[in-house]
């Protein structure tokens, strides 16, 4: 195969493009700018750490099933771990969102980073909601019967039936986790490509 042919291959083009956009030293950097030394910058990675615990505890719940998480001591523990890691996930994500909103984190060509964060937030809300209606207890029955009227009023009930446990569980353990993980991965890669947004005064210094 000639060099020109190799150059034309989609694998070659994709590899060169990926390596150009995100060289290894940018993907896993050794240092960060001085302005990152602030507590406000730790909430993104806190959200990520909580997401890992959410996924691991969710996988254990999926392996064992509702009978186990309702009746055994370890099941109760893993069920509670799943709930509290979700609480920490949303808590950290909101503080991360406030921090990024007030520092205008979409500056410097970071629009897509901001937008993937917003869409991940909405996907997470939907994942949280489908989780609440998939608990298979009186709480989930109450939440689904209360929310069905709201969702039906939007017309969404024709394809998203909150009273259909099978559908809600599939959304919760297949579609939404895939969406949340893919979007989070994209968000983190974009942060690595564009770098962490500098404070406003740093931006002004650069402009001068």
């Amino acid at each position: 195969m000639s060099t020109t042919e190799i150059d034309r291959q989609w694998t070659t083009r994709l590899r060169r493009r990926a390596a150009g956009k995100l060289p290894p030293e940018k993907l896993l950097p050794d240092t960060q700018p001085a302005y990152v030394s602030s507590w406000i910058y730790v909430f993104g990675v806190t959200t990520l750490a909580a997401l890992v615990v959410v996924i691991v505890s969710g996988c254990i719940l999926a392996l064992e099933g509702p009978q186990w998480w309702h009746s055994s001591n370890i099941g109760h523990f893993v069920n509670s771990t799943h709930l509290w890691s979700v609480e920490i996930f949303f808590f950290a994500m909101i503080v991360h969102l406030w921090g990024k909103f007030f520092m205008g984190a979409w500056r410097g060509g970071r629009t897509l980073t901001w937008m993937t964060g917003c869409v991940t937030f909405f996907a997470s809300i939907l994942a949280g909601f489908t989780g609440y209606v998939s608990q298979t207890n009186f709480d989930s029955q109450w939440i689904s019967t209360q929310s069905k009227d709201g969702i039906n009023a939007t017309g969404g009930g024709s394809f998203f039936n909150v009273l259909n446990l099978g559908q809600m569980l599939m959304w919760h353990i297949v579609i939404l986790p895939i969406a949340a993980i893919a979007l989070t991965g994209m968000h983190v890669l974009l942060v690595r490509i564009k770098g962490v947004v500098p404070p406003f005064e740093k931006d002004t210094e650069i402009a001068r």
């Binding site: 507590w39 808590f91 503080v95 406030w98």
Partner: peptide, 15 residues
């Protein structure tokens, strides 16, 4: 309330 307290603390506490 706790989220607001955490947010303000993150801005004010030295790293």
């Amino acid at each position: 309330g706790l989220m607001i307290v955490t947010f303000v603390a993150a801005l004010l506490l030295p790293f």
